[in-house]
């Protein structure tokens, strides 16, 4: 049901279809003209498709997509359906769905857009060559030419939109993966979470950090979150503000934040910038932060000897 998703992604409904048809200046007249050519199209179909695949298979980059005879037979069958669709005289939502399915299939097997468009261009030329042979009247030939060209371009636009939507999906998936990697939350102890923040903190990442921390605090019912900023490349007033905001939000949930990994340099920056950090628990070393967090949940780390003597 991939094509359904693409239909939704392109906001494809009757209105959108109308807008597209009008953008390509496809009129009812064009569709009727194409429908009237159907007998002619049927006659030339096998010839056109055979030539088309001969051309495709002669090209090295395209050939890799047709590893064996069975594949070629399969795609030729699909191609016949596609071809007859052009002369069906009807462009409705089902037509669009069929086109999107074809586009999605090509995208899935990794046919590059350049090859897809190149194939289209060949295809269009073959159709015109063959069909035009039988249209003797010049004026009529021009009209037929225009109608076929409009509809093929309409189809190409749908294919490109499918490619675009698919790439956006891929980018989105990658972004999600990066986001997950960039905001790791570690459960150090029962009800104590640690988020080491590494690299650059811009406002988008700061927002991710805050949202991740808040969701995890509630999920784990954590009492303390340690934010370790030792790996943050630059702590300026914006970063400091984001950290304060996260601390304030965590407090609203009923948990506390400890900021660790503060270098002497960062301490100087924070004070010079006049950032209000009186309400924050801070430690320079992560180890101290963990000890403090444990104390907050009523635990403590003690030397083994001492424990024995107790």
């Amino acid at each position: 049901m991939v094509e359904r998703q693409y239909m939704a992604r392109l906001n494809m409904d009757d209105n959108e279809l109308r807008r597209r048809l009008s953008a390509f200046e496809i009129t009812e007249e064009d569709l009727q003209r194409l429908a009237s050519l159907r007998p002619l199209a049927e006659r030339h179909m096998d010839g056109i498709i055979d030539d088309f695949y001969k051309l495709l298979l002669s090209h090295e980059e395209m050939r890799v997509h047709f590893p064996d005879e069975a594949t070629v037979r399969h795609v030729k069958r699909m191609q016949r359906e596609y071809f007859l669709g052009l002369f069906s005289g009807k462009v409705d939502l089902r037509y669009v769905e069929d086109r999107l399915r074809a586009g999605a299939a090509h995208e899935r097997i990794g046919v590059a857009p350049k090859l897809y468009l190149a194939a289209y261009s060949r295809y269009l030329r073959l159709i015109l060559d063959r069909v035009m042979q039988d249209v003797t009247d010049v004026a009529q030939a021009c009209q037929v030419y225009a109608s076929i060209q409009k509809l093929v371009h309409f189809d190409m636009a749908l294919a490109l939109d499918t490619y675009l939507a698919a790439s956006i999906d891929t980018i989105t998936r990658h972004q999600a993966a990066i986001r997950e990697l960039s905001t790791p939350v570690i459960r150090v102890y029962e009800r104590i979470l640690l988020m080491p923040i590494i690299g650059t903190v811009d406002s988008q990442r700061a927002q991710q950090i805050m949202e991740t921390v808040l969701v995890r605090v509630v999920e784990e019912q954590a009492r303390v979150v340690i934010l370790d900023i030792a790996g943050v490349s630059l702590v300026d007033s914006q970063v400091a503000d984001h950290l304060l905001e996260t601390t304030a939000a965590v407090r609203l949930l009923g948990a506390q934040t400890i900021l660790t990994g503060i270098s002497a340099q960062v301490a100087r920056t924070i004070v010079r910038l006049g950032v209000e950090i009186a309400n924050m628990h801070t430690c320079s070393r992560l180890a101290d932060g963990i000890e403090l967090a444990l104390r907050m949940v009523g635990k403590r780390i003690a030397p083994e000897m001492q424990q024995r003597s107790e």
Partner: peptide, 23 residues
């Protein structure tokens, strides 16, 4: 308080220092 509510209130600049909070 839900995470999205906490994020929204702090983003707006609302401080609730006068009440205690718990999970």
């Amino acid at each position: 308080m839900r995470p999205a509510v906490a994020a929204t209130l702090t983003r707006m600049g609302f401080v609730m220092d006068d009440v205690y909070t718990a999970l």
